[in-house]
Computed example of a mutant assay.
Amino acid sequence: MNSARLLRAAGAAVLAATLLTACSDDGGSDAVPRDWIRKTYTPTGADWVDANSSPREVAKAIHSKRAALDRASGGSAEFLRYGDDMVTVSPHRGGSLIEIEDYRNGYHRHQRHLTYWPNPDSASFRGGGPGEGK
């Protein structure tokens, strides 16, 4: 009897691991390529830096790795929208600072540059997460 429970527990663990991998932060087609950013750029607290490239060059590289749903520019920064998140690439000490944040927070912070992006507080806004707005 114990081996049957052990077998069920092992099966449940494998299933859980599979689901977690499928739902990882780099999993969806509209998700920020976080793992790639972590491997490519230098961490600085919760953000990353590229000491040698302009915001436009960094945004282009990130967009090339995984196409953003939308892009915008303003105030010398570049903005990439990915489902429920956004990436802001701004000038930093001759290079670029890369920030990943929740779309709602990022939108409110940079709203003046994102004039045609959907307002996350509007009734018609649909985020990019699973089951959002359905």
Rank of each mutant, 00 (worst) to 15 (best):
M1S: 00
S3W: 04
L6G: 01
L7S: 06
R8I: 07
R8H: 12
A9E: 07
G11F: 08
A12T: 10
A13K: 14
A13P: 02
A13L: 14
L15P: 00
L15M: 10
L15T: 11
A17C: 06
A17I: 10
L19Q: 00
L20V: 09
L20T: 07
T21K: 04
T21V: 05
S24F: 00
D25G: 00
D25S: 04
D26N: 12
G27A: 15
P33E: 06
I37K: 00
K39E: 11
T40I: 03
T40S: 02
Y41P: 06
T42A: 00
T42W: 08
G45H: 11
W48M: 08
V49M: 05
S53C: 01
S54P: 09
S54Y: 09
S54E: 09
P55N: 06
E57V: 14
E57Q: 15
A59H: 05
A59K: 07
K60D: 15
K60V: 09
H63G: 07
S64I: 06
R66T: 05
A67M: 12
A68G: 10
A68C: 09
L69S: 14
D70L: 11
D70E: 15
R71W: 03
A72D: 15
A72F: 07
S73F: 03
G74H: 10
G75A: 11
G75R: 09
S76M: 08
A77C: 11
L80Y: 10
L80E: 07
R81P: 09
Y82S: 01
Y82K: 13
G83Q: 05
D85E: 14
M86H: 07
T88S: 02
V89W: 03
S90G: 01
S90T: 15
P91G: 05
H92K: 13
R93W: 01
G95S: 07
G95C: 07
L97H: 11
E99D: 12
I100Y: 01
E101G: 12
D102P: 04
Y103F: 12
Y103S: 03
Y103V: 04
N105D: 14
G106V: 07
H108F: 15
R109Q: 13
Q111P: 09
R112H: 06
H113A: 13
L114I: 14
L114D: 03
Y116W: 09
Y116E: 11
N119C: 06
P120T: 04
P120G: 02
D121W: 14
S122G: 04
A123D: 14
A123Q: 12
S124H: 14
S124L: 06
S124Y: 13
F125T: 08
F125N: 10
G128M: 09
G128I: 13
G129Y: 11
P130V: 15
P130L: 05
G133Y: 10
G133M: 06
K134I: 05
